[in-house]
C-alpha cells in the first residue's frame, strides 16, 4: 500500500509540476485581433456556445480572469473533461465549480473540449476546423 500511495503522490506531484512549468511558456491570447479569425465547423460552433455559456466569464476567451488561463496549459481531453465534471481538482484545490450532465450534456462536453483544444492551437491564418 505504501508503494501505491507513494507512486500516486509522486506521479501527481510531477504532473502538477509539468503543468505549472508549461503554463509559463507562452501567451494565452488567441482572439481575432491578435491571431486572426478562427474558422469553426459545426461541432466547434456548438462547442464555442457551450464555452460562452459556461466558461467565458471566468476564462475570457481562454485567457486569465477570475480563473487562470487555459489556452496555454497542456491539458489532455480526458483531464479537461474530468476538470469540467469534478469540483475536486488537485485534491479539492481550485475554485471552479463542477458541471453535471444536466448542465453540460455528454455531447456538449465533447463539443466544448474540442473547441478548447482548437482554440489553444489557434495560430494566425491557420485553418483550424480540420485540426
Amino acid at each position: 500500500m505504501k508503494n501505491t500511495y507513494s507512486l500516486t503522490g509522486f506521479s501527481l506531484f510531477f504532473g502538477v509540476a509539468v503543468i505549472l512549468l508549461a503554463a509559463g511558456c507562452g501567451s494565452a491570447r488567441r482572439s481575432e485581433p491578435l491571431r486572426g479569425p478562427l474558422t469553426l465547423n459545426e461541432q466547434l460552433q456548438r462547442g464555442q456556445i457551450v464555452f460562452m455559456n459556461n466558461c467565458h466569464k471566468c476564462h475570457p476567451g481562454g485567457e486569465a480572469g477570475v480563473g487562470p488561463s487555459i489556452n496555454n496549459v497542456p491539458l489532455t481531453k480526458g483531464i479537461l473533461k474530468f476538470r469540467v465534471r469534478s469540483k475536486a481538482f488537485l485534491l479539492g484545490l481550485g475554485r471552479m465549480p463542477s458541471f453535471k450532465k444536466h448542465e453540460i450534456s455528454r455531447q456538449e462536453l465533447n463539443d466544448l473540449v474540442r473547441y478548447i483544444k482548437v482554440l489553444k492551437k489557434h495560430k494566425e491564418d491557420l485553418p483550424t476546423a480540420t485540426l
Partner: peptide, 12 residues
C-alpha cells in the same frame, strides 16, 4: 463574445 479592439502584449 469576440474581442474586437484589444491591447497588444503577452497578456491582456
Amino acid at each position: 463574445i469576440q474581442d474586437f479592439a484589444v491591447n497588444k502584449g503577452r497578456v491582456n
